[in-house]
Computed example of a mutant assay.
Amino acid sequence: MLGPRLRLLCALALFGAALGLRAFPLHATEPYDPWPGLVQDIFDNRPMLDGSDVIAIEMPYRAEDAAIVPVTLRSKLSPDDSRQLRAITLVIDQNPAPMAARFELGADARVSEISTRVRVNSYTNVHAVAELSDGKLYMVKTFVKASGGCSAPAVKNPEEARNHLGQMKYRQFARADQGSSNSTREAQIMIGHPNNSGLQMDQLTHLYIPAFFIDELHVWQDNSPVLSMEGGISISEDPNIRFTYVSNGAKTFRAEAKDTSGHVFQKEWKIDDSGT
């Protein structure tokens, strides 16, 4: 026979277990998926087609540093495909501002690959949406394990960041198929900028640093557009954009960037027939 005290304890345990079952049902609900809402907010609910034969997205499954996660977007269109890549939108679903960047591509530049670095705030799907010349949207996705990227402290201290603000560098890479003035080239634009997300905390004052980032970038060879980027808080500190394009024989390469405080940064570089 159970004593009165033990019977009471057993009754309380059973009651607690019953409450637990009610609070946590046997069949857990599906985790919230923000993607349908993002399709509505970012793409106005336009149909999304399978983009596995159109575009590839490459990111590490587990990021080494959530504040500088590498991402590469690559066209998979075959040379005989009459369609052209017009724009690519990069969406990091679980980030506070999910649209990381939108790249519009110059009609004659034939950009086929873009790489950059992004902040990832939590475990998330990352979508790449390509818009082709047929007016349709094609989507692919990948999953990334990372957390805290949007609130990670800046690498540079504020004084160093101010000294490098708006400094732009251009770099050209040699390619095996780069034999003539109108061949495919690979280049990189680097911009000195803290790209503050608005979620980072000043380590001295313990106050949040206001959002302050590059929101526009335009790149030309001579006067012909190569690409434009609409950026957000998910682009890492010191934005770094690497891309391929087809040369039109231009003698100059230039870039213009704008940030959310209204600063405009411009730079022009001379290039020769070998692309150097």
Rank of each mutant, 00 (worst) to 15 (best):
residue 217 L to Q: 11
residue 140 V to R: 05
residue 260 T to G: 02
residue 84 Q to A: 11
residue 113 E to D: 09
residue 128 A to I: 09
residue 152 A to D: 12
residue 10 C to Y: 09
residue 222 D to R: 02
residue 142 T to C: 04
residue 75 S to I: 08
residue 171 R to N: 10
residue 116 T to Y: 03
residue 207 L to E: 06
residue 93 D to Y: 02
residue 102 R to D: 03
residue 120 V to I: 15
residue 244 T to H: 07
residue 268 E to T: 15
residue 81 D to Y: 13
residue 74 R to T: 11
residue 181 S to A: 05
residue 94 Q to G: 09
residue 181 S to M: 03
residue 75 S to W: 07
residue 74 R to Y: 02
residue 81 D to I: 08
residue 204 L to H: 11
residue 215 D to L: 00
residue 153 P to S: 06
residue 165 L to W: 08
residue 44 D to L: 13
residue 140 V to N: 08
residue 167 Q to A: 12
residue 10 C to R: 08
residue 73 L to I: 09
residue 76 K to R: 05
residue 275 G to Y: 07
residue 191 I to V: 13
residue 36 P to R: 08
residue 78 S to G: 13
residue 112 S to H: 03
residue 36 P to L: 12
residue 77 L to W: 09
residue 150 C to G: 02
residue 129 V to D: 08
residue 177 D to S: 13
residue 5 R to T: 14
residue 191 I to P: 04
residue 108 D to Q: 15
residue 68 I to D: 02
residue 179 G to W: 08
residue 58 E to R: 09
residue 86 R to L: 14
residue 178 Q to P: 01
residue 114 I to A: 05
residue 36 P to D: 13
residue 164 H to C: 01
residue 195 N to E: 14
residue 204 L to V: 11
residue 71 V to F: 02
residue 186 E to K: 14
residue 261 S to A: 15
residue 93 D to A: 15
residue 53 D to Y: 03
residue 215 D to R: 00
residue 14 L to Q: 10
residue 32 Y to H: 13
residue 263 H to V: 00
residue 62 R to N: 06
residue 185 R to L: 02
residue 216 E to M: 01
residue 142 T to M: 08
residue 103 F to G: 01
residue 207 L to M: 09
residue 241 I to G: 01
residue 203 Q to K: 13
residue 80 D to M: 10
residue 184 T to M: 10
residue 250 A to E: 06
residue 135 G to K: 00
residue 126 V to I: 15
residue 69 V to L: 14
residue 57 I to Q: 04
residue 270 K to F: 00
residue 215 D to N: 09
residue 125 N to I: 00
residue 237 E to G: 12
residue 12 L to P: 05
residue 155 V to Y: 06
residue 123 Y to Q: 10
residue 102 R to H: 02
residue 33 D to C: 10
residue 30 E to C: 05
residue 12 L to S: 10
residue 139 M to N: 07
residue 43 F to W: 11
residue 159 E to P: 00
residue 173 F to C: 06
residue 61 Y to M: 03
residue 26 L to E: 14
residue 61 Y to L: 04
residue 170 Y to D: 01
residue 195 N to H: 08
